[in-house]
């Protein structure tokens, strides 16, 4: 049997790699990739707990389905925004996009 901790370890690792990607990449799409990684890590976490804690109801699985849904929607909208931004300023280097402030 594979202990739960191993799954959690993988999930945590993926999550932190995703964080690193979000915080350190300059391409906006690369940031989105990091976000997707984070979401996947969360999904693994949810599924593992769902399988180990509550196999009859599988609430974890259901939750993971919803996360999946939202991730897809969010990826679509995010990319649309990136396209729109790209049309206006000809690049998607987040280092240089700093107008989201007071």
């Amino acid at each position: 049997m594979i202990p739960l901790n191993w799954y959690l370890f993988v999930s945590g690792m993926l999550f932190c790699i995703g964080i690193f990607g979000v915080l350190s990449r300059r391409n906006a799409i690369a940031i989105l990739m990091g976000i997707e990684l984070m979401l996947n890590a969360a999904n693994i976490n949810l599924v593992a707990f769902g399988r180990f804690m509550d196999p009859s109801v599988l609430a974890g699985h259901v939750f993971a389905v919803f996360v999946l849904t939202v991730a897809a929607a969010e990826a679509a909208v995010g990319l649309a925004i990136i396209i729109a931004v790209y049309r206006n300023i000809e690049h998607i280097n987040v280092d240089k996009i700093n107008i989201m402030k007071w």
Binding site: I19, V22, L23, S24, A28, I31, V94, D95, I97, N98, I99, M100, K101, W102
Partner: peptide, 14 residues
């Protein structure tokens, strides 16, 4: 807190 840079805001969150 108001750099306008996305990754700085993300940094604060994390």
């Amino acid at each position: 807190a108001q750099t306008g840079l996305l990754q700085d805001y993300a940094l604060i969150v994390f």
